[in-house]
Computed example of a mutant assay.
Amino acid sequence: MHLHFSENAAETILLLYVIIVFLQSGIDKARHWGGNLSWLKEHFSKSPFKNQVPLLLGVITVMELGAGLLSVAGLVHLLLHDNGGLAFYGALVACVSLLMLLLGQRVAKDYEGAKTIVIYLVPAVFLLFLLQ
């Protein structure tokens, strides 16, 4: 069996990045739901999202786990079959998740936090570009 690593080295590294970032974040949100919810309720207490925090936390948790899991499946499929279809959708879900987080930070007027999200968005968008 031939692994298609050398043909897809940049994509492989960026998929590993997405897997680490999104699985860790999604698992952390699920494992520490109460603490995250408490912090986010305070963070969004003066925003239009203040009454939707539990729902929005659930949505972003599912999105992050989805991005990570799709990226795992996509990485395996890319390395075994030289096909980036699943990886593309993992990167796409990652980008949408980051845009959701960016919107949240901007609405909460946490501009420093919003800048941090952009740091994560750039490699995710580059991965999306490489996989199309």
Rank of each mutant, 00 (worst) to 15 (best):
N8T: 12
L99T: 05
F5N: 14
E64V: 05
L101R: 08
Q132F: 13
F49P: 01
E64L: 11
A114E: 01
I19K: 02
A124T: 06
I27Y: 02
L37M: 08
I119Y: 14
S38M: 07
V125C: 10
L70D: 05
N51H: 13
G90D: 04
I117F: 01
H32P: 13
D28T: 13
L98P: 05
I13M: 15
I27R: 00
A9E: 12
V59N: 10
G68K: 01
I60S: 14
H4K: 09
L86Y: 06
L127P: 02
H4R: 15
A94Y: 01
A67R: 05
Q52T: 13
L14F: 07
Q105P: 09
G68Q: 02
W33A: 14
V96A: 13
V118R: 12
V21Q: 04
L127F: 02
K109S: 03
G85V: 02
A108F: 05
K50V: 04
S25M: 00
A94K: 00
I19C: 03
A87V: 02
F126T: 07
I27T: 06
S25V: 00
G68M: 01
T12V: 12
H43C: 03
A91Y: 04
K46Y: 07
L65Q: 15
F44E: 05
A10C: 14
Y89P: 05
G34T: 15
G68E: 02
P48C: 12
G68I: 04
C95F: 15
R106M: 08
A91T: 06
I19E: 01
S71D: 01
K46L: 10
G66H: 05
F22G: 00
K115Q: 15
G90P: 05
G85H: 00
L40M: 08
S6I: 11
A114K: 03
C95R: 06
G85C: 00
H4M: 08
A73K: 14
Q52S: 11
G66T: 12
L103K: 09
L131K: 12
I27K: 01
L37V: 05
F49N: 03
L131A: 10
S38Q: 08
F126I: 10
L86G: 02
S71N: 00
L23R: 01
I20G: 11
A9D: 11
Q24D: 13
L121A: 14
L78H: 09
V107M: 07
A124S: 11
L80Y: 10
